[in-house]
Nucleic acid binder design. Structure first.
Length: 571
RNA sequence: GCCCCCGUAGCUCAGGGGAUAGAGCAGCGGUUUCCUAAACCGCGUGUCGCAGGUUCGAAUCCUGCCGGGGGCACCA
């Protein structure tokens, strides 16, 4: 990325100016290089001279003059300007920019990739909704954030594993089995009531019927506990088939479906329990076993930052094993975090959780620390919940209420591409409101189509070019000097920076913002610059422009693929 | 009571401590003798919730308050 080169260029200039005595000696601050909001301020700008003013005891403008005077010449720099009150504004050279078209074409699908991960292994675990029914719409945000983040980290040089954590044990599974039992018995004509707190959803009625059709009254004739166990297994199998299909409807494919129960079966839980017990992190009280997250004997370290300290202090004791001997979800989480970091050795474990689980974040980190693992290797990405409305009226969500909007319903109403894009345009920190009525109405005006349309238009240009017998062979990209051409290339060149920004902040929404800006630059170009023309005088420029739009098509496609939506050849 | 997120244009929301706070939608007006009008071009004074503080510089960081949402189980 040229961005990094420019930062180094400025850093060297500052050091050189100090060495030569233009500037006094002091530890130079970090060079922040930003993309100015105002295009008139260049492609890049740095306020570094402003922050050096006090250290140097000089006016920022004068510092900037000294620094700029010591900057080495580079072919990619067009102009360097000093602006009040002391900014250094840097423009890329038009010739260099034009030349990048060849570079983008050469990089093809890998254009936009950066090497931040350096091959380290990251796991993104997302959705992980309880396997008790179809994915609710609320899981859609989780799905899209997690999947896009996985795409982004892969593009940022991480080796990424995508995982769905299957909560196939615990309370909710028992309720699920009991609910299925009731629906199954009902399907066979028995008067079996749905248990209290049972799942009222219609999908279980259907599942009960399907099970009855396949197995007859087999489960009614066996011992009830045995039947519940068998129905839990059977129901889980069916639910997972549905969830897998729901995820695939959004283009999501997991590398692994990790069973919670397996953590108990394969000894992970036992090992973790023994270690924590031996190290004094567990205590017995009131017949239960508790995890002490705030053990006094653990001194705060100098390296512990405020946030960590607060996390540690706030974390109270939590039950790991109930007085009846059954483990809680925390027991599973302990085994799971160990499984991720220690046993499977991921360098970075990312969990995607709804904000309603934010209280558990300190817990998981505390467990990691108690196990002697670096809690910084755990990142929990929280997203605020989506409020669903229909015609301005609030739609209550949740599996226990009758009215539950499924992710599948929304996808069928507004399409997978629009669903993904829409859920991705807002920052995860922002709670969003979605009116289904409005979303259906507006789906045809969804910005995703604006971006896809750009891709389709380019495909169309190539179809026409072929018809006219025009090719890009021998095109000379140095002819690309028109402002609209330059602007388009400059936008294309930003993709690696956007990927880096997203990977750095885990904020995938920058990607959709960028996609729209990129498409906008293309559409403007398209309006102003003819690509394929019958005018013979236009032939050379036409070849160059064909190269340009092919590069633009590549960048649009790469961006769309990161977002996880299709890049259509026609619309 | 404690904890987390949000409060920016009519609506939905961007805004990585910097220069005149932006986009989409909605609204008004204009653009098509050859590559898709799902497009392009033009039109925007908003107490950046309020009050302090830090800083050369705050929508952005800190503190308090107000408002909205969520969480504080031997549920997950």
């Amino acid at each position: 990325m040229k961005r990094d080169d420019i930062i180094q260029l400025i850093e060297r200039a500052i050091k050189k100016a100090q060495k030569k005595g233009d500037l006094p000696k002091f530890d130079p601050p970090e060079v922040v290089l930003e993309r100015p909001k105002d295009e008139g301020h260049g492609d890049y700008a740095t306020p570094v001279c402003l922050s050096m003013a006090r250290l140097a005891r000089m006016a920022p403008i004068q510092i900037a003059e000294k620094v700029v005077a010591r900057m080495e010449h580079a072919d990619y720099i067009g102009s360097v300007e000093i602006a009040h009150p002391g900014f250094i504004n840097i423009n890329l050279s038009d010739a260099w920019v034009a030349q990048q078209v060849e570079d983008i074409l050469e990089q093809g699908q890998s254009f936009g990739h950066v090497d931040m991960g350096q091959g380290r292994r990251a796991q993104v675990e997302y959705i992980s909704a309880n396997p008790t029914g179809p994915l609710p719409f609320g899981s859609g945000r989780n799905a899209v954030l997690g999947d896009t983040l996985a795409n982004l980290l892969a593009a940022a040089g991480w080796q990424v594993q995508r995982e769905y954590y299957v909560n196939d044990t615990g309370n909710q599974m028992e309720v699920f089995a009991a609910s299925l039992y009731a629906r199954y018995a009902q399907a066979l004509g028995h008067d079996e009531p749905l248990p209290e707190n049972g799942y009222p959803g219609h999908y279980l009625v259907e599942m009960g019927e399907a099970v009855a059709t396949q197995f007859g009254d087999r489960f009614l004739s066996m011992d009830r506990d045995e039947a519940l166990k068998a129905l839990q297994t059977e129901g889980l199998k069916r639910t997972l088939v549905g969830i897998r299909a729901d995820a695939e409807a959004l283009g999501i494919h997991f590398d692994q479906w990790k069973s919670e129960q397996s953590l108990y079966d394969d000894g992970a839980y036992g090992a973790v329990f023994n270690q924590l017990s031996a190290d004094g992190w567990l205590t017995h009280r009131e017949g239960a076993i508790w995890f002490k997250g705030d053990r006094e004997s653990e001194p705060s370290t100098d390296t512990e930052d405020k946030e960590q300290e607060r996390e540690r202090q706030e974390d109270k004791e939590n039950v790991v094993v109930r007085s009846d001997g059954r483990p809680t979800y925390l027991a599973s989480d302990m085994a799971y975090v160990w499984d991720k970091l220690a046993r499977r050795g991921f360098d970075w474990a990312i969990y995607v959780w709804g904000a309603d689980h934010h209280g558990h974040v300190p817990r998981v980190k505390a467990v990691a620390r108690a196990l002697g693992l670096d809690a910084d290797r755990v990142t929990i990405l929280l997203y605020q919940l989506v409020t669903l409305k229909r015609g301005g009226k609030l739609v209550r969500m949740g599996k226990r209420t009758g009215e539950m909007i499924t992710l599948r319903e929304v996808i069928e109403e507004i399409g997978a591409d629009a669903t993904r894009f829409m859920l991705l345009t807002r920052s995860a920190d922002s709670q969003m409101e979605l009116d289904l009525t409005l979303a259906v109405q507006q789906s045809s005006e969804n910005p995703v189509y604006y971006v896809q349309y750009g891709h389709a238009r380019i495909a169309s240009i190539f179809r026409y070019a072929q018809e006219q017998g025009v090719s890009l062979e021998g095109g000379d990209v140095s002819l690309l000097t028109h402002p609209a051409e330059q602007e388009l290339i400059r936008q294309m060149l930003r993709l690696p920076e956007i990927v880096a920004l997203c990977a750095d902040t885990l904020g995938s929404h920058h990607l959709t913002q960028y996609a729209q800006r990129l498409a906008s630059a293309f559409h403007s170009f398209y309006k102003e610059c003819r690509v394929v023309s019958s005018d013979p005088a236009h032939a050379e420029l036409g070849k160059a422009r064909l190269k340009l739009v092919l590069a633009a098509k590549t960048v649009l496609a790469n961006t769309l693929h990161l977002i996880g939506v299709s890049a259509p050849e026609s619309m």
